[in-house]
Computed example of a mutant assay.
Amino acid sequence: MLATPAMAQDHSAHDHSAHQPAPAPTPMDHTQHTMPMVDKSAPGAAPESAVPARALEGPLHAADAIWGADAMAPSREENRRMHGEMTTGMVLVERLEARIPAEGGEDGWLWDAQAWYGGDIDKFVLKTEGEGEIGGSVEDAEVQALWSHAIGPFFDLQAGARLDIEPETRSHLALGIQGLAPYMFHVDAAAFLSDRGDLTARFKGEYDQKITQSLILQPRVELEASAQDIPERGIGAGLTKIEPGLRLRYEIVREFAPYVGVEYEAKLGETADITRAAGEDPTGWKFLLGVRAWF
């Protein structure tokens, strides 16, 4: 069929604009959706600790609104028991070492250990330490039985009894703190009141500096003091002794680490005078060879 002029005219009259591709959409401006910055220092601004009133609406536990308080109570109690009241125990042999004087004299040995059992808040702690001559008798030995109560995230208050076994039997009341000071310093400080009225104190501080994951350098210092003279122990009033030292240990496994080290021991004040009067040197260096272990 041939197209007539009228048909051609009608065809040309069609509006082809409807068949043109749609224009690309204009990108959305997302800048309007950003959270406004609030200047907390502006006058009248709510503090960071402010809690919206709606946060305190509804049940104390959201799950109660779905399952009911009676159904959720046993689950919460089990969760608290498993994660908040776990009892744990540990035995730590902090120092078990041979001590060799740098300037001659008798070689000695020393132990310093503690064990505990309990929860995060309260636990029973047993401490013991002492020293003697290699191949000879024990010269000093003591045991402490303590109740330890958490007084913060990093410190425990400890109270109990201390019993000296050598050089003579003597009992003490003990009160102290133990924990982790800022910058990861381990601190153990205590005061002791003996059954004879003698008041003494002891401070221990140490820091573990990791050289590698297994090699650890530990600076350590121990101080002792007495409120009065204790002639039978060769102790004078004031600061009586200081022992700074360095130990370098290698953790074969986390639970077992042999070490070498050096320590300087100095008796101070009146205690040093008593030591000199007895014909002994109140100061001296010692080389150390020992092991640290826990389980």
Rank of each mutant, 00 (worst) to 15 (best):
E131T: 08
D70K: 07
R76I: 09
E139F: 03
D140M: 07
S171F: 05
S171H: 03
G119W: 01
V143N: 15
F155D: 01
E166N: 05
G105D: 11
A63S: 06
E133F: 04
V91W: 12
Q158N: 06
A115K: 00
P167T: 05
R170Y: 07
F155M: 08
V93N: 09
H61N: 05
W116R: 04
E85V: 06
S75D: 07
E133W: 06
A102C: 10
H61R: 07
A113D: 01
G104L: 09
A62K: 08
E106R: 05
T88R: 08
A150R: 15
E78Y: 06
A63M: 06
T87H: 07
A98K: 13
L92D: 11
L110D: 00
L157N: 03
D107K: 05
T87C: 10
K123W: 08
M86A: 08
A150F: 10
N79M: 11
G132I: 00
L126H: 14
G68R: 01
P101Q: 14
A145H: 13
D164C: 01
T169W: 02
A69C: 03
D122E: 13
R81W: 07
M86V: 11
A113Q: 03
L96P: 12
Q158R: 04
G130Y: 08
S148Y: 14
L173Q: 14
E77Y: 07
P167V: 02
E94D: 11
R80D: 12
R81T: 09
E97M: 11
D140Q: 11
R76S: 07
E131K: 04
I134Y: 13
P74G: 05
H172V: 10
E142W: 15
D70W: 06
Q144W: 14
G89F: 12
D120M: 03
E166Y: 04
E133K: 09
K127H: 14
G105A: 08
G104C: 05
V138P: 06
D122P: 15
A141W: 10
E142I: 13
P52W: 00
F155T: 06
E168N: 10
M72F: 08
V125R: 15
M72K: 00
W67N: 09
E85R: 09
D156Q: 06
